[in-house]
Design a protein around this nucleic acid. Structure first.
Length: 275
DNA sequence: AAAACACCCTGCCTGC
DNA sequence: TGCAGGCAGGGTGTTT
C-alpha cells in the first residue's frame, strides 16, 4: 500500500493535529507484527506515557513521531508495511478488527495503528539517529537525491533498474507502483542493468521526482485500502501512466502497455517509450 | 558483495 | 454457494 507519497500525505495530515498532543496510555492487541515480533508495549508505555508530540516526520517510508517526556526525548518509529493505516480518531469511533496499537491522547482522541496483514512496525526508540533501519536508508528522493550520486551508485550494480530502485538502500521511499511510474517518465526500461544506464541518471532523478510529486499532489494512490490520517482515499490511481494499465494505450505513443513479473512482482512499461 | 528466494500475514478475487 | 488457488502497494534473513 504505502509508498513515499502515501506516507508523506499521512504525515502532512497528522502533523498539525498531533503536535502538542499528550499520550495518556498505550493499548496493544498482543498480536505480532513485522517478522512475527510482538509489539513491545512496555517500551511504548515507558517512553510514551505522559510525553508530548514535538514533531511528525517521514524518513523513506517510515514515520517518526518525536516525543518529549519528563524522562527525556524519545520517538515512535512506525512503518505501515503493506496494509497498515495510521489514523487520528475520536475515542468513541468504532474499532477496526485489525487494530494493533492505540495511543490514547488527550481531548478524547486516539492515534490508531490498524494493519490486517501485520507486516508493519510500531516501536519506541530513544535515539532516532541510531536506529539501524533508518541508517540503512538511501537518500530521500525529494530532498537528497542527485544525479551524480545516483550515477555513482548505478555504476557498481548489475541489478535491473526495477530491482535497483526498489532497494531502499539506493533510494528511500520508492515501491512497486512508483518505480514503474518513474521508469516510464524517465524513458528507461525496467530490465536494463543499472550500470548500463548511468548516462540516464539525471532523467531518472527527474522521473522519480515527477512520479512522487504527482502522487503527493493527488494525496496518494488508493488501489485497495490506503487512506490518509483522516480516513480519506487518494486520487492518484486515476493519474497513473503505466501501473495497472497493461493492454491499454500508452498516453504518449499509443502502444499497448506491457506487464512483466519478476520475483512475484508486477512491472508495467511501454516498450516504445522506454529504451 | 550482490542477487535470488522464502517468509511473515489477511483479504479479495477468480475459476472450477 | 463453496472452496482452492493466486494475487496484493513491504521488508528481512538466509542462501547462492
Amino acid at each position: 500500500m504505502p509508498e513515499l507519497p502515501e506516507v508523506e500525505t499521512i504525515v502532512r495530515g497528522l502533523r498539525p493535529r498531533l503536535i502538542g498532543a499528550k499520550i495518556a496510555d498505550v493499548w496493544t492487541s498482543g498480536l505480532a507484527l513485522r517478522l512475527a515480533r510482538p509489539v513491545d508495549r512496555a517500551a511504548l508505555v515507558r517512553h510514551g506515557r505522559g510525553a508530548r508530540v514535538t514533531a511528525v516526520r517521514r524518513r523513506g517510508k517510515y514515520i517518526v513521531v518525536d516525543l518529549q517526556g519528563s524522562a527525556g526525548a524519545a520517538a515512535l518509529l512506525i512503518h505501515l508495511g503493506m496494509s497498515g493505516r495510521l489514523r487520528l480518531q475520536m475515542r468513541a469511533a468504532s474499532h477496526d478488527k485489525h487494530t494493533h496499537v492505540v495511543f490514547r491522547l488527550d481531548h478524547d482522541r486516539d492515534l490508531r495503528f490498524v494493519d490486517p496483514r501485520r507486516f508493519g512496525l510500531v516501536r519506541a526508540v530513544v535515539r532516532v539517529d541510531a536506529v539501524p533501519e533508518l541508517r540503512h536508508l538511501g537518500p530521500d528522493p525529494l530532498t537528497e537525491l542527485d544525479a551524480a550520486g545516483l550515477a555513482r551508485a548505478m555504476a557498481s550494480s548489475r541489478a535491473p533498474l526495477k530491482a535497483f530502485l526498489l532497494d531502499q538502500r539506493r533510494v528511500a521511499g520508492l515501491g512497486n507502483i512508483y518505480v514503474s511510474e518513474a521508469l516510464h517518465r524517465a524513458g528507461v526500461r525496467p530490465t536494463t542493468a543499472a550500470r548500463r544506464a548511468c548516462g540516464r541518471a539525471a532523467a531518472l532523478v527527474d522521473g522519480i521526482r515527477a512520479a512522487l510529486e504527482a502522487g503527493i499532489a493527488n494525496r496518494g494512490t488508493t488501489l485497495r485500502d490506503y487512506v490518509d490520517g483522516e480516513g480519506g482515499a487518494g486520487e492518484n490511481q486515476h493519474a497513473l501512466l503505466v501501473y495497472g494499465r497493461q493492454g491499454q494505450p500508452c498516453h504518449t505513443c499509443g502502444e499497448a502497455i506491457r506487464r512483466r513479473v519478476d520475483a512475484g512482482r508486477s512491472t508495467f512499461y511501454c516498450l516504445r517509450c522506454q529504451r
